[in-house]
Design a protein around this nucleic acid. Structure first.
Lengths: 144, 144
DNA sequence: CAACTTTATTTGTATATACAAATATGATAA
DNA sequence: TTATCATATTTGTATATACAAATAAAGTTG
């Protein structure tokens, strides 16, 4: 079925949720080789590229809540991909050697994903869409 | 923080997920008066407007999986807003009188939500975005 | 320096969602 | 007519995510 067959298709809630689910599915597929969800994978890349980064910063960058970040870190920890050290109120997250080895593969998945959606949506169109969505997301975040 | 402060902000996974989360948050707020999540509310409206509709059709219209629809229905059932009847392999979902009473309020929430995002994002821009996202979502669904 | 406030993180709990398998019914072909 | 296949739905289980409360440390002000 097509989105516009739906009576509520003109609603932004629907179109954004449905679109995001499609993209998420494609992303999950792209990151299967490393057995990580897209969120975990992106977070891990950030941790590798910026060893010692704090959960709060990760939350900001990934635009997820701190509690979600804690949960994501726990999972990566259980997979022996990161370690946490706490000093005072600040926590630092470091990649393990195992994670560093994985880095090229992570980058490769990221690239494959980009190519995959560009192929389906068109490079121009998808890049325009990204810009628009970022701009609009910012309109929300300044309200908070 | 702004989306484009993020190193991965040019990635469609991020921008679509982050954007959808913002919209979802606004939608949740809009539907608080009826104590329903946006998905439940939209599904309920469909059930009221098309009494006896089958779960499979709801899944198609809402672009959610059948199992998710079952779970959403269960919740509405527990709130005494819908009832299910099964005959053979087909199930029909009907709104209760309580749900029908709620209908105007549901519509009102829907309208408030539309106004809310239009006010923040601009009517033109958001409607263009909806169209683009629908079009692109369809490009995925034909692949399946 | 003690009391309060702010900041960073984690925990407890709840949510919507999906996948895979199970169930049950209906349809079709040998 | 029986055996196989297709369809509709539900169940079991797992997931990412969030909110509110808890914890704990640091900063600030009287």
């Amino acid at each position: 079925m097509k989105t516009n067959d739906c009576r509520y298709s003109e609603c932004l809630y629907f179109s954004s949720a449905a679109f995001a689910r499609q993209i998420e599915k494609l992303a999950q597929e792209s990151w299967k080789p490393v057995d990580l969800s897209p969120s975990h994978a992106y977070m891990l890349m950030m941790i590798i590229e910026d060893a010692g980064i704090q959960p709060g910063i990760l939350a900001e960058n990934l635009m997820l809540t701190p509690s979600t970040i804690t949960r994501l870190i726990e999972k990566l920890e259980s997979k022996k991909l990161v370690v946490r050290t706490s000093e005072g109120k600040v926590t630092n997250v470091y990649p393990t050697p195992k994670a560093k080895e994985l880095f090229p593969l992570l980058k490769q998945c990221s690239q494959k994903f980009n190519e995959a959606y560009s192929a389906i949506l068109g490079r121009e169109e998808s890049s325009r869409l990204v810009q628009t969505m970022n701009k609009l997301t910012d309109k929300f975040t300044v309200l908070e």
